[in-house]
Amino acid sequence: MTGITQLRAKAAPLNRANVDTDQIIPKQFLTAVTRAGYGKHLFHDWRYLDLEEKVPNPEFELNRPEHQGSEILLARENFGCGSSREHAPWSLTDYGFKVVIATSFADIFYGNCMNNQLLPIALNNEQMDALFAAVEADPEVQIEVDLPAQQVRVANQSFDFDIKEHHKYKLVKGLDAIGETLELAKSIDTYEQAIPAWR
Protein backbone atom coordinates (compact mmCIF):
# COMPACT_ATOMS: atom_id res chain seq x y z
CA MET A 1 0.00 0.00 0.00
CA THR A 2 1.39 3.40 -0.91
CA GLY A 3 1.73 6.11 1.70
CA ILE A 4 -0.01 9.45 2.07
CA THR A 5 2.07 12.61 1.85
CA GLN A 6 0.34 15.51 0.17
CA LEU A 7 -3.12 15.94 -1.22
CA ARG A 8 -4.85 18.79 -3.01
CA ALA A 9 -8.54 18.08 -3.41
CA LYS A 10 -12.01 19.40 -2.89
CA ALA A 11 -13.92 18.60 0.27
CA ALA A 12 -17.44 17.37 1.01
CA PRO A 13 -19.02 19.07 4.04
CA LEU A 14 -20.85 16.89 6.59
CA ASN A 15 -21.59 19.52 9.18
CA ARG A 16 -22.67 17.17 11.98
CA ALA A 17 -21.36 16.04 15.35
CA ASN A 18 -21.29 12.46 16.62
CA VAL A 19 -21.36 10.82 13.19
CA ASP A 20 -21.38 7.25 14.45
CA THR A 21 -20.22 4.07 12.77
CA ASP A 22 -23.82 2.87 12.44
CA GLN A 23 -24.39 5.88 10.18
CA ILE A 24 -21.14 5.45 8.30
CA ILE A 25 -21.96 1.84 7.48
CA PRO A 26 -25.16 0.24 8.84
CA LYS A 27 -25.27 -3.29 10.21
CA GLN A 28 -26.91 -4.97 7.21
CA PHE A 29 -23.67 -4.53 5.27
CA LEU A 30 -21.48 -6.10 7.94
CA THR A 31 -22.31 -9.65 6.91
CA ALA A 32 -19.76 -9.53 4.08
CA VAL A 33 -16.56 -11.49 4.69
CA THR A 34 -14.30 -9.35 2.48
CA ARG A 35 -12.73 -5.89 2.86
CA ALA A 36 -13.88 -4.52 -0.50
CA GLY A 37 -17.01 -2.95 -1.92
CA TYR A 38 -18.40 -0.99 1.03
CA GLY A 39 -18.23 2.45 -0.63
CA LYS A 40 -21.62 2.16 -2.30
CA HIS A 41 -23.22 1.65 1.12
CA LEU A 42 -21.42 4.54 2.85
CA PHE A 43 -23.93 6.67 4.85
CA HIS A 44 -26.69 4.41 3.49
CA ASP A 45 -29.55 5.68 5.68
CA TRP A 46 -28.84 9.34 4.93
CA ARG A 47 -27.77 8.85 1.35
CA TYR A 48 -30.66 6.84 -0.05
CA LEU A 49 -34.41 7.17 0.27
CA ASP A 50 -34.93 3.46 -0.34
CA LEU A 51 -33.40 0.26 1.02
CA GLU A 52 -32.29 -0.88 -2.43
CA GLU A 53 -30.01 2.18 -2.88
CA LYS A 54 -31.71 3.21 -6.13
CA VAL A 55 -33.12 6.56 -5.02
CA PRO A 56 -30.52 9.03 -3.74
CA ASN A 57 -31.69 11.49 -1.12
CA PRO A 58 -31.29 14.90 -2.79
CA GLU A 59 -31.15 16.58 0.64
CA PHE A 60 -28.03 14.71 1.73
CA GLU A 61 -24.90 16.84 1.48
CA LEU A 62 -22.72 14.26 -0.24
CA ASN A 63 -25.29 13.71 -2.98
CA ARG A 64 -25.05 17.27 -4.29
CA PRO A 65 -23.47 17.39 -7.75
CA GLU A 66 -20.83 19.93 -6.70
CA HIS A 67 -19.45 17.56 -4.04
CA GLN A 68 -18.93 14.57 -6.33
CA GLY A 69 -15.33 13.48 -6.55
CA SER A 70 -14.36 14.95 -3.17
CA GLU A 71 -11.41 13.25 -1.54
CA ILE A 72 -11.64 15.09 1.77
CA LEU A 73 -14.56 14.80 4.21
CA LEU A 74 -15.30 17.56 6.73
CA ALA A 75 -17.26 16.83 9.92
CA ARG A 76 -17.62 17.91 13.54
CA GLU A 77 -16.77 16.43 16.94
CA ASN A 78 -16.61 12.77 17.89
CA PHE A 79 -16.54 11.48 14.32
CA GLY A 80 -16.59 7.65 14.12
CA CYS A 81 -18.02 7.06 17.58
CA GLY A 82 -19.66 3.74 18.38
CA SER A 83 -18.63 0.31 17.25
CA SER A 84 -15.14 -0.95 16.41
CA ARG A 85 -16.18 -2.00 12.90
CA GLU A 86 -13.29 -1.41 10.54
CA HIS A 87 -15.93 -1.46 7.82
CA ALA A 88 -16.26 2.28 8.61
CA PRO A 89 -12.83 3.29 7.23
CA TRP A 90 -13.17 0.61 4.53
CA SER A 91 -16.35 2.26 3.28
CA LEU A 92 -14.88 5.79 3.44
CA THR A 93 -11.75 4.84 1.46
CA ASP A 94 -13.71 2.72 -1.02
CA TYR A 95 -15.96 5.72 -1.67
CA GLY A 96 -12.88 7.77 -2.47
CA PHE A 97 -12.02 9.69 0.70
CA LYS A 98 -8.36 9.93 1.63
CA VAL A 99 -8.65 12.42 4.48
CA VAL A 100 -11.28 13.14 7.15
CA ILE A 101 -10.99 16.50 8.91
CA ALA A 102 -13.16 16.85 12.02
CA THR A 103 -13.19 18.53 15.42
CA SER A 104 -12.42 15.23 17.14
CA PHE A 105 -12.48 11.47 16.56
CA ALA A 106 -13.48 8.42 18.55
CA ASP A 107 -10.41 6.40 19.61
CA ILE A 108 -11.07 3.05 17.92
CA PHE A 109 -12.07 4.70 14.65
CA TYR A 110 -8.94 6.86 14.73
CA GLY A 111 -6.76 3.77 15.16
CA ASN A 112 -8.62 1.95 12.40
CA CYS A 113 -7.91 4.86 10.01
CA MET A 114 -4.17 4.41 10.56
CA ASN A 115 -4.40 0.80 9.42
CA ASN A 116 -6.21 1.82 6.24
CA GLN A 117 -4.22 4.77 4.94
CA LEU A 118 -7.06 7.12 5.77
CA LEU A 119 -5.71 10.31 7.37
CA PRO A 120 -7.83 11.67 10.25
CA ILE A 121 -7.05 15.31 11.08
CA ALA A 122 -8.44 17.02 14.17
CA LEU A 123 -8.80 20.83 14.02
CA ASN A 124 -10.51 23.11 16.50
CA ASN A 125 -14.04 24.41 16.06
CA GLU A 126 -13.00 27.80 14.65
CA GLN A 127 -10.71 26.18 12.12
CA MET A 128 -13.51 23.80 11.13
CA ASP A 129 -15.83 26.81 10.80
CA ALA A 130 -13.33 28.33 8.37
CA LEU A 131 -13.13 25.16 6.28
CA PHE A 132 -16.90 24.74 6.16
CA ALA A 133 -17.23 28.42 5.18
CA ALA A 134 -14.63 28.07 2.42
CA VAL A 135 -16.43 25.07 0.93
CA GLU A 136 -19.79 26.79 1.21
CA ALA A 137 -18.46 29.87 -0.57
CA ASP A 138 -16.89 27.77 -3.31
CA PRO A 139 -17.56 24.03 -3.42
CA GLU A 140 -14.71 23.62 -5.90
CA VAL A 141 -12.18 25.20 -3.56
CA GLN A 142 -9.02 23.10 -3.30
CA ILE A 143 -7.94 22.16 0.19
CA GLU A 144 -4.31 21.24 0.60
CA VAL A 145 -3.29 18.61 3.10
CA ASP A 146 0.42 18.37 3.82
CA LEU A 147 1.18 15.47 6.15
CA PRO A 148 4.96 15.92 6.43
CA ALA A 149 4.43 19.59 7.34
CA GLN A 150 1.30 18.76 9.39
CA GLN A 151 -0.67 21.53 7.77
CA VAL A 152 -4.08 22.05 6.19
CA ARG A 153 -4.22 25.02 3.81
CA VAL A 154 -7.15 26.67 2.11
CA ALA A 155 -6.96 29.95 0.16
CA ASN A 156 -4.64 32.12 2.27
CA GLN A 157 -5.30 30.32 5.57
CA SER A 158 -3.11 27.64 7.06
CA PHE A 159 -3.82 25.40 10.04
CA ASP A 160 -1.29 23.22 11.84
CA PHE A 161 -2.44 19.85 13.13
CA ASP A 162 -1.06 17.33 15.61
CA ILE A 163 -0.37 13.72 14.81
CA LYS A 164 1.71 11.20 16.71
CA GLU A 165 5.07 10.51 15.13
CA HIS A 166 4.44 6.76 14.76
CA HIS A 167 1.04 7.38 13.15
CA LYS A 168 2.59 9.80 10.70
CA TYR A 169 5.38 7.35 9.94
CA LYS A 170 2.84 4.61 9.29
CA LEU A 171 0.71 6.76 6.98
CA VAL A 172 3.65 8.12 5.04
CA LYS A 173 5.44 4.79 4.68
CA GLY A 174 2.35 2.57 4.38
CA LEU A 175 4.06 -0.18 6.37
CA ASP A 176 3.00 -3.70 7.20
CA ALA A 177 2.39 -3.36 10.95
CA ILE A 178 2.38 -7.11 11.55
CA GLY A 179 5.62 -7.61 9.67
CA GLU A 180 7.21 -4.92 11.80
CA THR A 181 6.06 -6.52 15.05
CA LEU A 182 7.18 -9.95 13.93
CA GLU A 183 10.70 -8.57 13.89
CA LEU A 184 10.30 -8.38 17.67
CA ALA A 185 9.42 -12.09 17.87
CA LYS A 186 12.34 -12.77 20.22
CA SER A 187 11.03 -10.26 22.76
CA ILE A 188 7.58 -11.85 22.54
CA ASP A 189 9.09 -15.32 23.08
CA THR A 190 10.99 -14.09 26.12
CA TYR A 191 7.92 -12.41 27.54
CA GLU A 192 5.78 -15.51 27.05
CA GLN A 193 8.21 -17.73 28.92
CA ALA A 194 7.73 -15.61 32.04
CA ILE A 195 3.90 -15.53 32.02
CA PRO A 196 2.55 -17.19 35.20
CA ALA A 197 0.46 -20.33 34.71
CA TRP A 198 -2.80 -18.72 35.89
CA ARG A 199 -2.74 -16.22 33.05
Binding site: I108, T181, L182
Partner: peptide, 23 residues
Protein backbone atom coordinates in the same frame (compact mmCIF):
# COMPACT_ATOMS: atom_id res chain seq x y z
CA UNK B 1 -10.20 -4.81 28.03
CA UNK B 2 -10.88 -2.87 24.87
CA UNK B 3 -12.34 -3.14 21.38
CA UNK B 4 -10.13 -3.24 18.32
CA UNK B 5 -10.53 -3.10 14.54
CA UNK B 6 -10.10 -6.04 12.21
CA UNK B 7 -6.52 -5.11 11.21
CA UNK B 8 -5.65 -5.24 14.91
CA UNK B 9 -7.47 -8.58 15.25
CA UNK B 10 -5.11 -9.85 12.55
CA UNK B 11 -2.17 -8.30 14.40
CA UNK B 12 -3.14 -10.14 17.61
CA UNK B 13 -3.65 -13.37 15.67
CA UNK B 14 -0.14 -13.15 14.25
CA UNK B 15 1.77 -11.73 17.22
CA UNK B 16 -0.44 -12.01 20.38
CA UNK B 17 0.49 -8.37 20.95
CA UNK B 18 -0.71 -4.89 20.06
CA UNK B 19 1.13 -1.62 19.60
CA UNK B 20 -0.39 0.86 21.97
CA UNK B 21 0.15 4.33 23.31
CA UNK B 22 -0.84 4.94 26.90
CA UNK B 23 -4.20 6.60 27.54
Amino acid sequence: AFGIGTSEVEHVFATQTLKQGKA
